[in-house]
Design a binder for these strands. Structure first.
Lengths: 143, 143
DNA sequence: CTAGTTGCAAACATTTTGCCACTAG
DNA sequence: CTAGTGGCAAAATGTTTGCAACTAG
């Protein structure tokens, strides 16, 4: 399910979108870095790789990739910035360490299947998606 | 566990904080309305009740109540505004209907106990808190 | 009387828009 | 050549701060 930079680019190209320097750079950053990134962090990384682009342009490309389902938007509690990660990653959630602030991914055995069934039973609400964020102390900080 | 307007106010008073018109009005709105409210919605309700206050003041009171643990901040995915709800409500999550946008509360049987245990086992990450949001179609919209 | 509270104006952080120039295919 | 892309300046949105005036207890 996880896609490479090339797969994403050629899929976009086949839809008539261009393979520009910015697009290549941004997709490269996302495919090379699993964790949810903010626009600012993304720009820092681009800058560090000598592929600096205008703020507006970066936001626009993020919007483009979001609209095409290449990346997903995440919003952590108590953070003001939006974050983005590759949509083709396996379905997972995030563990946010309150001490070191680092984020890890977690894949749950059978996710929230039981909970979603009970929600349908008790409320008649048909869940199509969920978002879950755990806060706590990571192994490193616990020592 | 759910506290009344009076309990909250007198608890604040006992800590030396004043019982002002704004404070009474805002706490009244929160205790009378279970669902997560944005600052803007709160101001609308105040205005409708002839207790209009300056935007800054309302934000400041929200900050005050948050700092004292009276209300909690929530941030729904894809919403730009922060929302707030009484902290003394039973631990619950939210069902957000994608069609009518309404929010319902849901209390889960034994919440995410299994998942949190498995996270501790597999990652050594000690979960202290979590936030979970379900998206889907509510009973009303499903007909 | 005085710490706590309020309002105004202005600042702030993040993201979005309008408009026009540019370029990949 | 032309739809798609890029950059600049400015707007929009939601929230916060500085500061001086006001008020509950």
């Amino acid at each position: 399910m996880k896609k490479s930079s090339e797969e994403i680019l050629s899929s976009l190209a086949s839809q008539g979108f261009r393979m520009t320097r910015l697009r290549k750079a941004i997709i490269g950053v996302f495919t090379g870095n699993g964790l949810p990134m903010s626009a600012e962090e993304l720009m820092d990384i681009l800058r560090a790789g000598n592929t600096a682009f205008n703020r507006t342009t970066v936001y626009r490309e993020i919007g483009f990739l979001k609209a095409r389902g290449v990346i997903n938007e995440i919003q952590f509690l108590h953070e003001r910035v939006k974050r983005y990660e590759l949509a083709s990653l396996e379905h997972h959630h995030h563990l946010v360490c309150l001490r070191c602030k680092r984020v890890e991914d977690i894949v749950l055995e059978n996710d929230l299947a039981d909970q979603e069934r009970s929600i349908l039973d008790s409320k008649g609400f048909h869940v199509t998606n969920h978002m879950l964020e755990f806060h706590g102390i990571c192994r490193g900080c616990n020592r």
